[in-house]
Design a protein around this nucleic acid. Structure first.
Lengths: 223, 223
DNA sequence: AATTATCATAATGTATACAATAAGGTCAAC
DNA sequence: GTTGACCTTATTGTATACATTATGATAATT
């Protein structure tokens, strides 16, 4: 695996904790490559906002406050709801069909979910992401996709617990269907509002979990 | 000047034309540094979307279609109008005062404008940018600022002609005042819509110029 | 003449050595 | 005991040599 993906996954999975210091040499010897490719990965992670400079010497894994998370989710809601409305305007019937297929796959993935099986959980997560991506593809707006892909990374760190709750998953499935119907009927405003609500629900679920001290362990995916 | 800024400015000013090929070694010898810092700059320019990979060997300066420009301006409108509404909600009175000062400076800069003097033109451009930045600062949303700063670069390439037209500048000054009043009165919806309209005007001016064959030369700043 | 395989070349990918510099600790002076 | 200067050391910044690979040209074969 390339250094960028490796480090990014390590941060998302919690193998590198927020505040932990990262030095080029340590990473280089861990990944058994030279510093050059590590530097490249680090620069990219910095623009992703996953790491921040530390005292002009190296980087630390970024810590996100509740306010950070709220702001990032709000941005996500803004961008994805715009995407949904554009998709409602510009979708072709082939694209609509692909969206329906992805959401059907999502429904199946949820039904197969075993709470203790990490593989079925990852599958739900993956298929959900593919559903959202079908929508962005239908906008034909490459620049929008670039921005969304950036704003989607941080939420990944925090909502791992989300995928364990069947109640939440079934609720999001229902909202997916509302979004789909709006896109099918080419109702941009309705698609936009449904998507906005969808993201806000995710935001509030995450914030609520992070505010509940008893289930601190769920804050991070321990794999 | 560091390589990233140098290359970026060269692209914005048109010294590197769209489609032109960039190789690490050529840039390195031009800037009289080794390939290492050039590589770093190139990676960053790629995530900025200013250059794109070319046949798996190096990069070319990105060419933007009219549709690209339309999409980028629409994104800018989305993000900046959100910013204006957040600023209306969260501004302090000190921040409001700074915005007024910047817009006063903008008015002065316009009045001092000489159509042939590149320095006064750059000054108008600079002060305008500072006005917009005061608004984003007032949102206290660092993530929003990151996204806006990215979406603002491409328009810079195309709207150079804009700063030559006193009519357009006076119009945008009036809209600035509307935005300011909405932020002062803490009317987020009004601030949002005024900002949206402001960006759309800029978008349409640019697209119209690019569609007018006679003034092709104005498409790029020849400086 | 067209097509394909091979090879030379130019460009990027990677490793590593050396330079520059900031952080932190030690020692001395007050 | 506290403060400040200096020095050590850890870490990043830069240059460069070498490895790898994709491209385009050339030549050979059909």
């Amino acid at each position: 695996m390339n250094p960028y993906e490796f480090i990014k996954d390590a941060i998302i999975l919690g193998d590198f904790s927020p505040g932990e210091r990262l030095t080029e040499e340590a990473l280089a010897s861990t990944l058994k490559v030279s510093r050059t490719p590590i530097r490249e990965a680090i620069k990219q992670l910095e623009t992703d906002g996953l790491i921040t400079p530390y005292k002009r010497r190296g980087y630390i894994v970024r810590e996100f406050s509740l306010e950070d998370i709220r702001q990032i989710y709000n941005l996500r809601a803004l961008l994805e709801s715009f995407g949904a409305s554009e998709a409602a305007l510009y979708r072709t019937s082939e694209e609509l069909e692909r969206m329906y297929n992805k959401n059907a796959a999502y429904e199946i993935a949820i039904s197969k979910l075993k709470r203790s099986d990490i593989l079925t959980i990852r599958n739900v997560q993956q298929v959900n992401q593919e559903f959202h991506e079908e929508i962005f593809k239908a906008t034909k707006n490459e620049h929008l996709r670039t921005h969304i892909s950036k704003v989607v990374v941080v939420p990944l760190i925090f909502r791992s617990f989300y995928w364990y709750s069947e109640r939440m998953l079934l609720r999001s499935l229902e909202v997916h269907k509302t979004i789909l119907k709006a896109i099918e009927n080419q109702e941009p405003e309705r698609a936009k509002i449904a998507m906005q609500e969808h993201i806000y629900q995710g935001r509030d679920d995450v914030l609520q979990q992070l505010n509940t001290p008893g289930i601190e362990v769920l804050k991070r995916d321990t794999q």
